[in-house]
């Protein structure tokens, strides 16, 4: 065992999938995660599921956070989970945010998205969820 291992922040890849450019939410969340001590890799707008997963692998991210406001979440969120399966990286946790109706949240969780946050969610709730999920690192 190495001595005095520098605490390694949990790395979270944050991406906007889909075609819309509404990045207010994703930016506010990224700032809050940074302030909570996480390393946030922001990959920008209009990422395809393939791009998101490829970047997450290169960055050795433990978590992928997806944001979407275009209504394509039922197609694109499961596509990210599928791509993780294809790349044998199902240990990476996926969560999402955006305008997502209740029924869709239930369906998406069944398809392997760990958690979904809708507008109005306090930032602290997202941070608390991550801390519970990754007690060993980050903030």
């Amino acid at each position: 065992m190495p001595v005095d291992t520098a605490v390694r922040p949990v790395r979270i890849l944050v991406a906007k999938v889909g075609l819309d450019g509404h990045d207010r939410g994703v930016k506010v969340v990224a700032r809050a995660l940074r302030d909570a001590g996480y390393e946030v890799i922001y990959t920008g707008l209009r990422q395809t599921p393939e791009m998101v997963v490829d970047a997450a692998l290169q960055e050795d991210a433990q978590v992928i956070g997806l944001s979407i406001h275009s209504g394509a979440h039922m197609t694109l969120f499961p596509a990210v989970v599928q791509e993780l399966k294809r790349r044998k990286a199902t240990d990476i946790v996926v969560f999402g945010g955006g305008i997502i109706p209740e029924d869709d949240i239930v369906a998406l969780k069944k398809k392997g998205v760990a958690e979904l946050f809708t507008p109005g969610t306090p930032l602290q709730e997202i941070v608390d969820w991550l801390r519970k999920r990754f007690p060993q690192g980050g903030g």
Binding site: L19, R46, G71, A72, H73, T75, A79
Partner: peptide, 22 residues
């Protein structure tokens, strides 16, 4: 819809899941 706003046709690969939504 988003593909129209982003100047792409409905059969472009990145239009999947977006057609007619917004």
């Amino acid at each position: 819809d988003m593909p129209t706003l982003m100047g792409q046709d409905s059969d472009a690969p990145t239009s999947r899941g977006e057609i007619g939504h917004c």
